[in-house]
């Protein structure tokens, strides 16, 4: 029995992803949590590549690791100062959370390990000999409403129309949703004066200093 390098890479990336996810949970420092999350999501992108989802993996790296996490790190930088950087959780809360997490993990692991028994055929359908096909073009066509991947299946003409609907409407909905959310986020996070600073004294002092004619 030789070594399957696909499996070796899978175990490497899986251990990285799970280990950094656990590190996110166990760490108390919010800055370190952000770094562990970057590493964890990068390992998950590697798992996407291993599963043949090259376009999703690339987008995971670009949008998640490059965009969303930079946003999160900006949030960390804007809010983590002094004692706020590590807020402790009490031991009773950790015990309750550990109980919930352990039971949820047991249920999910049971479901995951019995996934092969969901169907009774038991035959292996994956043909591992074929070379990997890039998925960017069919994904782009499916987002525009054309399912190029369904055209290759052996179907009669009547059944061909079924399931051929692409994702044009969800694509438009999600793009409008993104615009609305970004406008709303920019509105919510606009610069305002902190509530803790004394409002009148600070502003009058600043205006006196800045005014050249005073």
């Amino acid at each position: 029995m030789g070594i399957v390098f696909h499996t070796v890479l899978f175990y490497l990336l899986a251990i990285l992803a799970c280990g950094f996810a656990v590190a996110v949970v166990l760490s108390n420092n919010i800055v370190r949590m952000a770094f562990y999350l970057v590493a964890c999501l990068g390992a998950v992108a590697g798992l996407f590549f291993l599963a043949g989802a090259d376009f999703v993996g690339a987008l995971q790296l670009m949008i998640y690791v490059g965009g969303t996490l930079v946003l999160l790190i900006f949030g960390v930088m804007l809010t983590a100062r002094g004692p706020l950087a590590n807020i402790q959780t009490s031991r009773a809360q950790w015990a309750m959370v550990g109980l919930i997490g352990a039971s949820l993990l047991a249920v999910l692991l049971y479901a995951a390990t019995t996934a092969g028994k969901w169907t009774h055929s038991g035959q292996i359908v994956a043909d591992r000999s074929h070379v990997s096909k890039p998925t960017a073009t069919p994904i782009g066509l499916a987002l525009l409403g054309v399912r190029a991947d369904r055209l290759n299946a052996e179907r009669t003409d009547a059944a061909l129309g079924k399931g051929m609907a692409g994702y044009l409407l969800p694509f438009e909905i999600v793009s409008v949703h993104l615009v609305v959310v970004l406008i709303g986020a920019a509105y919510l996070a606009r610069a305002r004066r902190r509530a803790t600073t004394p409002p009148m004294a600070a502003t009058s002092g600043d205006s006196n200093n800045l005014d050249p004619g005073d």
């Binding site: 964890c40 997490g101 999910l108 995951a112 390990t113």
Partner: peptide, 10 residues
């Protein structure tokens, strides 16, 4: 699925 379950629970 096991890796996904661990990430989800974390």
């Amino acid at each position: 699925l096991v890796v996904g379950a661990i990430l989800f629970v974390c």
